[in-house]
Amino acid sequence: MTHTTRVQSDAAGKATNRRFRHATMRDFPQMQRIYARARALMAANGNPTQWGTQFPRESVVLDDIAKQRAMLLVDEYDGQERILAQFALCPGEDPTYLNIDGAWLDNNTYVTIHRIASAGLVRHAARDCIKWALKHYGNVRADTHPNNKAMQHVLESAGFARCGLIQLLDRPTDTTRIAYQRHEW
Results as ranks from 00 to 15, higher is better:
Ala15Thr: 11
Val60Phe: 01
Tyr180Met: 07
Asn99Leu: 04
Thr53Leu: 13
Ala66Cys: 07
Phe87Trp: 07
Ile166Trp: 11
Asn108Trp: 05
Ile83Leu: 13
Ala40Gly: 12
Tyr110His: 12
Ala117His: 05
Ile113Thr: 08
Gly52Cys: 11
Met71His: 07
Ile116Leu: 13
Thr2Ala: 06
Asp64Val: 06
Phe87Cys: 08
Asn99Gly: 00
Gln8Ser: 11
Glu81Gln: 15
Trp104Ile: 01
Ala85Gly: 08
Asn47Trp: 13
Leu165Ile: 15
Pro48Gly: 14
Thr109Met: 01
Ala12Gln: 01
Ser157Tyr: 09
Ile65His: 09
Thr112Cys: 01
Thr24Val: 06
Leu72Gly: 10
Trp51Arg: 04
Pro172Tyr: 06
His136Val: 09
Ile34Gly: 03
Trp185Asn: 14
Leu155Phe: 15
Gln30Glu: 14
Thr53Pro: 02
Met151Thr: 08
Phe20Arg: 08
Val7Met: 10
Pro56Ala: 10
Ala179Met: 12
Arg6Trp: 01
Tyr35Lys: 03
His183Asn: 13
Ala66Glu: 15
Ala40Asp: 11
Gln8Cys: 07
Gln30Asn: 08
Gly164Pro: 04
Ala40Arg: 14
Trp51Pro: 03
Gly164Glu: 04
Leu165Glu: 13
Ile83Ser: 08
Phe28Ile: 04
Phe87Ala: 10
Asp128Glu: 15
Asp143Tyr: 11
Val7Lys: 13
Leu41Lys: 12
Gln68Asp: 14
Trp132His: 15
Gly159Gln: 11
Cys163Val: 08
Thr53Trp: 04
Pro56Ser: 08
Ala126Cys: 14
Asp106Ala: 06
Gly102Arg: 05
Leu168Asn: 03
Asp106Ser: 15
Gln68Glu: 15
Gly46Asn: 14
Val60Arg: 01
Ala126Lys: 02
Asn139Ile: 03
Ala158Asn: 14
Asn108Glu: 14
Ala40Gln: 13
Ile113Glu: 02
Arg82Gln: 15
Tyr77Asn: 09
Pro91Met: 00
Pro146Gln: 09
Thr176Trp: 03
Leu169Cys: 06
Asp174Lys: 05
Ile34Ser: 02
Lys135Asp: 15
Arg69Cys: 01
Tyr77Cys: 09
Gly120Lys: 12
Glu81Asn: 12
Arg26Asn: 13
His145Thr: 05
Ser118Tyr: 03
Tyr180Lys: 08
Val154Asp: 06
Ile130Thr: 12
His145Glu: 03
Gly79Lys: 08
Tyr35Asp: 02
Trp51Ser: 03
Gln50Arg: 11
Ala43Met: 06
Gly138Met: 06
Pro95Thr: 04
Thr109Ala: 06
Gln54Pro: 00
Ala103His: 08
Arg182Lys: 15
Phe87His: 04
Tyr110Arg: 00
Phe87Gln: 03
Tyr35Phe: 15
Thr173Gln: 14
Asp64Phe: 07
Gly120Asn: 11
Ile130Phe: 12
Glu184Gly: 00
Ile34Arg: 05
Ser59Phe: 10
Ala44Ile: 10
Tyr137Asp: 10
Asp75Asn: 13
Lys67Ile: 00
Gln152Gly: 05
Ala161Glu: 13
Arg115Asp: 06
Gln32Cys: 09
Gly138Trp: 02
Phe20His: 14
Asp75Tyr: 02
Ala161Met: 10
Asp64His: 11
Thr109Gln: 01
Val122Glu: 01
Ala161Arg: 12
Asp101Tyr: 07
Ile83Ala: 09
Gln30Asp: 10
Thr175Leu: 04
Leu121Ser: 01
Asp63Tyr: 06
Ala117Lys: 07
Glu58Pro: 11
Arg69Gly: 01
Thr176Val: 13
Gln54Ser: 13
Val74Arg: 02
Ile166Thr: 15
Glu81Val: 10
